[in-house]
Design a protein around this nucleic acid. Sequence first.
DNA 1: ATATACGTATTTGTATACCAAACCGAACCG
DNA 2: CGGTTCGGTTTGGTATACAAATACGTATAT
Lengths: 235, 235
Amino acid sequence: MDQAEESGDASSLVSIQPQMLHEAIVTQLQRMIVEGTLVPGTRLNERLLCDKLGVSRTPLREAFRVLAAQGLVSLLPNRGAIVLQLTTNDIAETFEVVSGLEALSGELACARITDAEVNEIRALHFEMLACHAKRDLPGYYRLNFKIHDAINRAARNEVLRQTYTTINSRLQSLRFRSNFDRDKWDAAVREHSAMVEALDARDGARLGAILKTHVLAKCASVLALQAVAAEAITR
Amino acid sequence: MDQAEESGDASSLVSIQPQMLHEAIVTQLQRMIVEGTLVPGTRLNERLLCDKLGVSRTPLREAFRVLAAQGLVSLLPNRGAIVLQLTTNDIAETFEVVSGLEALSGELACARITDAEVNEIRALHFEMLACHAKRDLPGYYRLNFKIHDAINRAARNEVLRQTYTTINSRLQSLRFRSNFDRDKWDAAVREHSAMVEALDARDGARLGAILKTHVLAKCASVLALQAVAAEAITR
DNA sequence: ATATACGTATTTGTATACCAAACCGAACCG
DNA sequence: CGGTTCGGTTTGGTATACAAATACGTATAT
């Protein structure tokens, strides 16, 4: 967790704060890892990255340490950093943690969300339904993210939000590629409808439960795809 | 999350792995912060710490970045690292997250724990009861930690364990000092008895709920002490 | 041909020197 | 008393050096 988010200072101050170089590098590498530009298992060569990013070794290596602390890369002594490659078990465990955090977030959101925020989420939900109807997967993903983020923000817990974001980022590159089939997609949309209902009723326990199963369903779908991919390689 | 815990490799390999200097420094500083040797708000002077620890600036500064990522220190641009000082709100938020992680851990533990492990925890529980009867607070804390750790391990989720440990470490220095009164102590012990029952019955939902309220009660007790301390300063 | 051994080239981890910019504190001035 | 100026200190970043570990290509042995 970096200082900007951690300190309770006014957001105006945050914008003034000049971020340090290693943080900029962390952000950049995070993006490349999450977007899949850097494939899991890739070795991060210091000299090459120094050239590419136009920085010296010191801040780059500091960034490596931070990314390792965030669980995005793995540091092998004397062999530098490699983009972390999650095992099937790692994926399952990480999704499990995310499901717990998301459930907590849902419970808290129900206790703290305003009517206006509920309406906002409902609007996003309908937009998402439209994307679903149009079979617009990228749009669906974008709105899906917005909805989960809105719930997260409604929970009014920055530590939770930060923790969730950090751990979830380890899974992002996988989530993108899960081309779910029609049935799973329909089921996910139904779960989303149930979420909005639970939110509207401020039923924290129910929303938490829905979110948990929602995330675990996503996990199963990712693992299934993973298994198919693994078989394709072995074959 | 550091590499050693992240890799799914055999534990025998971990011991071989020579840890890097910055990791040793992280561990050292973590201990000093958690134990309260380094008081929140303390500025960590690079040169002084380099001398004290006998290392150069490079690995020390890497350690600072890692500690910042873990939320133990705060990096102020051009002013270096200071031991993070949690606001009342920060404390509440962090406990909230911990409560969620602990609840998840309880749920998973009920699904996966072995009879032998339950018995082990029961034994620890009785030892703890003995400490409570003897009014042995340090012993109580030690066993309390062991029990929660055992539940955490029974959840069979290293990512969860690692996440929990990291976030919980931000609160450790506070937990030590909460001298709870007789009533709260008794209540905590009752909650622990209920935990063992729920664990024995493999009732995940109930254990989760107990753990959550248990942690939140601890939070309230810490915040109360915090308020008293704040008043003492103001007065 | 495959496997092993060896020597060289890279790469990494740490230390050090250096510099500009930011910060701190104290004397100074209005 | 509040603000300013100025020098010392600290930090962020770069560059360099070097030992140790690793990676790799070649030669050798089986």
